[in-house]
Structures are given as C-alpha cells and as structure tokens.
Write a protein that binds this DNA or RNA. Sequence first.
DNA 1: GATGGACCTTCCCACCGTGGGAAGGTCAAG
DNA 2: CTTGACCTTCCCACGGTGGGAAGGTCCATC
Lengths: 147, 147
Amino acid sequence: MSGETVTVGEAARLTGVSAKMIRWYEARGLLPPAARSAAGYRHYGEIEIRALHFVRRARDLGFDVEAIAGLLALWSDRDRPSAAVKAIAQARIVELRRRIAALEGMARSLEHLADACCGDDRPDCPILDDLSAGLGERAPREKRTPP
Amino acid sequence: MSGETVTVGEAARLTGVSAKMIRWYEARGLLPPAARSAAGYRHYGEIEIRALHFVRRARDLGFDVEAIAGLLALWSDRDRPSAAVKAIAQARIVELRRRIAALEGMARSLEHLADACCGDDRPDCPILDDLSAGLGERAPREKRTPP
DNA sequence: GATGGACCTTCCCACCGTGGGAAGGTCAAG
DNA sequence: CTTGACCTTCCCACGGTGGGAAGGTCCATC
C-alpha cells in the first residue's frame, strides 16, 4: 500500500532538510502545501519525501530558491526539454565561477599581504598599510595633516 | 585649519561606502559615533574618511564586520604587534579557501552533469536524474526502533 | 525674506536562509 | 490522566544591503 505517511520531523530526519526549512519552503511556494491530518499535522508520502531529497540535493549544489523551484517544476514535467534544465544548470555554473573568482582574488591578495607581513611583535604591518592605502598617505600614525 | 568636514552623502561618494552603510556601521559600533553639527548632521574629517576607505577595502577583501572592527582597532593602535594583524588575515584566508573549495565542488559537479546532458528537446536529463537520485543510497535509511 | 530642491535625520520593512524560542494543541505510552 | 515528545503558528535574530516614509535643514535663487 504505500500509504505510509510521516510527519515533518520524520521527513526532516529522512531528508536532511530541517522541519523549519520544510515549512519555510512550503510557505515560499517552493513545495506544494502538504497534506494535513485532522489535527492540522503535515503528512508526507514517498513522493513528497522524494521532492525533499531533490531540494536538499539542489541546495547542496548551490541553487537558490528560485532555481530550485524551476528545477522542481521541470522535474515533475515528464515532457520537459532537457535544454531547459541544462540552461538553469549552466547559469548556476556561471554564477558559481563568478563567485569563485571573486573569492580567489580576495584570497590571493590576502595571501600576498600575509606573506609580506613578518608577524612578530613589531608594529610594522604591510597588511594594514595596504588597507589604509589608496588615499593620500598610508598610515594613520601621522594623525595630523602631512606637510 | 584642515577643518574641512563633509556630510554622509559626500563621505559615501568619496569612499564608495553608501550612506546607509556608514550609518549602519556606526550603529553596529564598527565606527565611532560621528561628530554632529548643531542640526544633528554627521560630519566627517579626513581621518574618518580614511577609516571609511579602510573599511571599504577590508570589505572588498571579504572580511566580515567583526574582523573589520578588529582590524580597525589594530589600525589605530600604533603599538600593535603585526602578528595580531597577520592572524586575522590568515584566519580569513582559511575561511576563504574553505568557501572556495565548497563552491568549486559544486561547480565541478554541475559541470559534469551539464556535460552529460545533451540539452535538446527530449526530456531525458542526467541532471534531474542525479538530483532525484541518491534516495536509496546515501540517505540514512529509516532505522525505526523495533517495537 | 520666501520658496524649492537637494540633502539630512530616524524608523520600519524587505530580501535570503537559517536557527531559536514562546504559546498552545495532539498523540501515544505509562 | 499525566507526561513528554511532537506538532502548529508566530515573532525575532543574524549579516549586509536596499527602499521608502515622515520630518528637519541647508543653500541658492527669486
């Protein structure tokens, strides 16, 4: 019979999506409203559990809510063109690569600065010098306007 | 002299930190309360502008508010040990590398999937297959305590 | 002077995604 | 019946950022 249904907490345990998040996804329209018991408890069957797994996996891949909603819609459409799915994935890849590049730039800058900083008891620090650079003079140690 | 002071808007234009954010940083204690005119307008001198530049630059390097507060404190302490600064920078580097690795993993998975997806009119899609897979394998199977 | 527009002030609300917790209802076991 | 685990909704918080309302100020121009 496959009539076994579980509550949110159980669904959370099964899928790795917290009960809070399950309710939140539902409220945001990402998931359809769950079936309710007479007392108002949400109940989830195998298909819903599968959808939650899907959401979890997509979330792990860095998709945001909108994208996941789109993927879910395509997932449940048996006639979807695979091109539509691929487009979403590729947009996500572009975004990921963009963010990676940004973080990489930061990391490299910082590594460069940290390498130049001897890191001892003395106050001379290229890191702070760099952070305060770009205006006029560098350090705030000269508190008064330089000549 | 050098009593030239500017308002928030001007400071924002000069430093690239929005007026909103300047006020927010002040409210969060990241920046000391700005001097006020009789009418209550904030006014910023060269030193404050410098600090804002510093904040902007640190933000661009991915430091969060707490770290920036720490860096600012060290920046204005002439006797700080450079090791303290370096420690903050290195912690940031570790965090950046961690996030880069996470994003990189996602990007690679997605690229792999997208490569396998032909992206045409047909519904067969390895991407969706992967997203909905893993139910039987990776998921912690229901290990209900026996009655 | 007055007027108008650009600016300032504070305050609230929104976003994303997540967690914490309160107040109250339900269910199953003892 | 009581107890404790669970459910419900609702509010609040976070980091940062933006939007906007309601009201006060500054300055140039008439």
